[in-house]
Design a protein around this nucleic acid. Structure first.
Lengths: 131, 131
DNA sequence: ATGCGTGCAAATAGTTTGCAGCGAG
DNA sequence: CTCGCTGCAAACTATTTGCACGCAT
């Protein structure tokens, strides 16, 4: 996620570039840790102290509308967010719980589904390299 | 999900076969609609009126422990449950929102991930046959 | 009989909303 | 200056928990 591109998109929409939004963008840019809303709130509060949960949720919703943030849901966990909106897959480590992005070129996927299939994402479960 | 097999598993664990649990099992058996906890509560209440949400959640947790029920999480929706615990994939229709099971033999999946990969499930997004 | 499972209600967690005032453009 | 954005707090939704009683075994 490129901060400047997002700022451009926000301006095009006549949305304000408030300090809170900047702080959230700064935290999310190139963040591959799949933070929860609470993670974002905590990090942004440390950066720009006066920020409320509501603003974090509002901004998440806005970024999702702009198509620069995607939501990842896994069984048994809260929603997580991913500034990487290019198609990619995920590996969840069954040992440490960490979620890792997997580029599409490391996976070959074929199917014979009828109709129009627009996208496909794979969730792998296994042991990650760190474990 | 076979009701009789589950009842056997429950007995093996010395768990009671209460009317509420039977009603829940009856509803879930061969149910491919991926119901939410609220769907289950509603359906079971119609079948066996005296059932509380807590019992539905307790039973869901129990069935998950037994490995006969799996949880499916999609962005922007509550948790859904699937009595089909064999490996399979999903197709979410972008038009009607419906979630359909896709058998593994309709998909070919290869990857070069290091380490031990135990399972992989694909979420397709597209237009389903009905639409 | 005896203990697990139940309903109920309250607690908790995550998220959304209403509103008045502030601040970005 | 003006309207969108914010913080706050309350509302809401989904889920979990504590407890006393009742029912399956």
């Amino acid at each position: 996620m490129d901060v400047h591109e997002v700022e451009r998109l926000l301006r095009a929409r006549r949305c304000s570039l408030t300090p809170q939004r900047r702080a959230i963008l700064r935290y999310l840019a190139d963040n591959d840790t799949h933070p929860t809303a609470a993670d974002i709130f905590e990090a942004v509060t440390a950066d720009f102290p006066i920020t409320s949960r509501a603003t974090v949720y509002n901004t998440i919703a806005l970024l999702r509308e702009l198509g620069v943030l995607s939501e990842v849901n896994l069984p048994g966990t809260e929603a997580r967010f991913d500034p990487n909106t290019a198609p990619h897959h995920h590996l969840r480590c069954v040992r440490c719980g960490q979620l890792t992005d997997i580029p599409t070129d490391r996976v070959r996927l074929e199917h014979d589904l009828p109709g129009e299939v627009r996208s496909a994402s794979v969730l792998f479960e296994g042991v990650c390299e760190g474990c």
